[in-house]
Design a protein around this nucleic acid. Structure first.
Lengths: 205, 205
DNA sequence: CCTACCGATCGGTAGG
DNA sequence: CCTACCGATCGGTAGG
């Protein structure tokens, strides 16, 4: 992500400018969800806020820095919703089920994620490293959850925690694409429960 | 997809122009895989062939018609590889396993599919209807395969064929995104076999 | 934060 | 098939 947008050190900005920045980030996330990052122009984002694209560039040095800020914000929100709810135990997989339910009520969030993930396949894409790390973390997180389940004797015989983790996350992602394309015919949570029912020896809480 | 590119009726074109068209379609598919359809310019496609973008527009009336031709071609190739190999029996799911293996050796094909599918989420996108139908067909196809398996007593108790079909296809799609992003850490076939092993009562052929 | 501008790129067309 | 062009749009900067 270019030069790391996490300038936690630098001088804290004025409250008014800070509020404006947050507004820009929120609107940018909406536009990225609609058109992808590649298809989102600074002019379109600025217009939705009621300023010019040059004004927007007063708050962010360039187009890429705005993307970085959007991704950083997304991680913070995810952390608020999931990570902080408890330690990584076998309940982590359950938290992902809750996340899927949450996503079902927030299609814009899902669109942002799916569109950016597809664009970021290209190694030159400014969000490529973000998604590489994002996927790796998710796999590790779910993996340790399945490992805990296994040690508790709640995983079916012959279930490899690593494959189970990859399968669970890939299923979550694949459902999102089909759900966004045909919302009426696809359920975001059902198949995840379905998979877990066939991997666990205990009923879902 | 605008006005249906399938002009099977119209006058057959000259062999030379026909070869040129095929060349353009193949190169366009490559560029779509790299940059998405939204990011692919006629000038870039034309340059890779060694002509001008105006020359390209001699063969296709506009940008969208070229996309339609690429998608049409893709379906023909899929049909050659899978559909014609036999009737829709319980072997259909096995054919999809083979397809996943084939895909693993053809990343460009997978990239084309993943990038376009993400862009086509927007209802106004020229490939939206294509993917809506594509997914519906895939679900139906795999569904009838699981139904056949169920009637043959090869499906585990309590496995709903419809959910199983959606799960299988979504898993296939989700794996592709992660595989393209991190090819070294993700296996395109393993998790599909893993899922089937837990849904079937018989070992995989 | 805006106005005004820059060089670059886009899809499509005329005219041959 | 090409040359030459069109109007539109893009990210970024100067200068206030």
């Amino acid at each position: 992500m270019a030069g790391s947008e996490t300038d936690r050190s630098g001088p804290r900005r004025y409250p008014k400018g800070e509020r404006r920045r947050e507004e820009i980030i929120a609107v940018a996330a909406e536009v990225y969800a609609d058109t992808g990052y590649d298809g989102a122009s600074l002019r379109e984002i600025a217009k939705r806020i009621g300023m010019t694209h040059a004004g927007l560039l007063y708050h962010f040095p360039n187009r890429e820095a705005l993307l970085a800020a959007v991704l950083e914000r997304r991680d913070e929100q995810d952390a608020e919703r999931v990570e902080l709810r408890g330690p990584v135990t076998f309940g982590a997989v359950g938290h992902l089920l809750e996340l899927a339910g949450y996503n079902e009520r927030h299609p814009a969030l899902v669109e942002l994620y799916v569109r950016l993930a597809a664009e970021a396949i290209a190694v030159e894409h400014p969000a490529h490293d973000y998604f590489t790390q994002h996927y790796a973390m998710a796999r590790t997180w779910v993996y340790s959850s399945f490992t805990a389940l296994s040690e508790a004797g709640q995983l079916r015989a012959g279930v490899d925690p690593e494959t189970a983790a990859l399968t669970f996350i890939a299923l979550m992602d694949g459902l999102q694409v089909q759900w966004l394309t045909s919302p009426d015919e696809v359920d975001l949570v059902g198949p995840l429960r379905f998979l877990l029912e066939h991997l666990l020896t205990v009923p879902l809480s």
